[in-house]
Design a protein around this nucleic acid. Sequence first.
DNA 1: CATCATTTGTGCGTATGTATC
DNA 2: AGATACATACGCACAAATGAT
Lengths: 323, 323
Amino acid sequence: MTGSDYEPDINELDLSDEERDRFADAQRPLWEVIAASLRADILEARYTPGAPLPSETALSTRYSVSRPTVRDAVKALVGEGLVSVVRGRGTFVRAVPDRHAILLGAWPRHDIADAEFIPTAHQWGWTQLAAPHADDDEGRQVYSRSEFNAANRDIATTLGLRTGHTVFHRSSRWRHTTTGLIIGVNSYTVPEIIPVPAPKPNVADAFVHAFTQPSFYDTITSGRGPTTWETTVTARMPYADERELMALSVGSPILIIRRILADKDGRPLEMTEIKADAERIETAYARENHDTYPEGFDPDIHDIEQLADRPDPAPTGRILFLL
Amino acid sequence: MTGSDYEPDINELDLSDEERDRFADAQRPLWEVIAASLRADILEARYTPGAPLPSETALSTRYSVSRPTVRDAVKALVGEGLVSVVRGRGTFVRAVPDRHAILLGAWPRHDIADAEFIPTAHQWGWTQLAAPHADDDEGRQVYSRSEFNAANRDIATTLGLRTGHTVFHRSSRWRHTTTGLIIGVNSYTVPEIIPVPAPKPNVADAFVHAFTQPSFYDTITSGRGPTTWETTVTARMPYADERELMALSVGSPILIIRRILADKDGRPLEMTEIKADAERIETAYARENHDTYPEGFDPDIHDIEQLADRPDPAPTGRILFLL
DNA sequence: CATCATTTGTGCGTATGTATC
DNA sequence: AGATACATACGCACAAATGAT
């Protein structure tokens, strides 16, 4: 591929040696100028999704720069999620996938440990993946990992504990059958509310005393209700291992959805966190506001179907999950 | 910052010359091994927030690699938001700032164009910034830009229009006085519901016919209610210009909060979009679920104060805004 | 099936510029 | 002013993946 089919029509293209000096005078790095030029080409659809960019050597010839400089420009575009690079093939404009929705605030709500949770998840098309780095005593892979950990600053703050305080941590990974989406689910419980023998709790005890109960939610909230839920949403860039485990495309952040369960005094009991590819997932809220409700309308019952049946439900393709 | 679920492989740290060869055999790029080593050092607090990493030359000596290779490793960490690089000074571990909350679903709700909006925003500590690239006829800066645009694919999908359909677009930027946070606010209205003379609407007409009314919301919803709101949250990486305009740190995604106003038949009328630094902002939902409500409790009235007064309101420092 | 040209990935050495202290 | 540190940029070599022959 020579790239000869491309029509450069921007003044910033085709840098001659003299023009190169002019840009150098402008105190703007060459790679940035080139990135801006390519970015404009993509956003203004001179390169359409799926189409290849000219090869790095072709670009370095066109812009009269070295290949490392072109690569710096391409890296910037990769970081913006505009292109993806395939070794041995080339650099391609990314087609942005449709976003699906995780519906927050819907009923029924389940604790991740509850018996109702896994059937519900299956019903919505999710199957559990083997947990990473989690083998049982015979070396077999297990589907979820449960252990007592020291809380890092983030988890501790969320649960109202000091950093380093022990928390009961359960983690699992799920794949959505039709879309292939992978999400990570982590749950952190304040250990004091789990009825395990003091002074040294361990995972086996936790299983016996909590998971064998019909409802982990009932176990930890017993006598502490009425409880409240608070859901927050933010995002950050994934670490290298997260990108691999969740099959994220380079340049895509992860959406972090946290649901905090608090007792009647507002003290946090448990926090459940879902990590999902922000490029393919958005959150929507089920219990939306209305100017007026129709006679006899109960939002708790109706809003899920209403959102799902919307004739043109915005960028969300389909609702994938309730939390 | 989390990292709780990140499992650093201690064996891979502190490469000696011989170890380097071993890793080369392992088919793992040197820069990746070095990045993993430094990442573990940071997440396990061997380098604490604010502390400098060794200089690039020092690192290249320690790991016995060239400086460009060390720089590749550092770039990976920058992309993960773990370190920031200051030219002439060094590379520093980032102190992750507290996240503040934008509260969704709270009353009263205002259209961005309404007279109530600006006082409300001021009351919450926000001041308007000059809109970028927006000058009036005398070359003075203006605070917001209003124009009729062709909708791109994303906006068109959200509003249920075809790509390229004209939309009424208003944009502004705001800075939060005490935190210094900058958010971008964009609003897109389906033009057919704005009472402007056909066939060729223009900005001046829109102002006359819409903004001079006491309530833009009333204008566009008149006869179309009861209306519904739907709020969605997702994230993506910023483009270079967005990073500059919103003073984002490198490696931080932007949180995209969209509020869609629809008529009684579910047809979208208007979409308001807030873009904020995901590293410093999260969303929370005001109308949370409770197992039971206390006698006489009206969530519409109480939930804002309840969230604001929570003894330990999770990672959110303080609520910054209602949407 | 092997071979080959093309394309990106990794890594080195070097030089120069510029910001900071 | 000098030392230090990062930023930009070039050239080169070889490895690895891909797709066509």
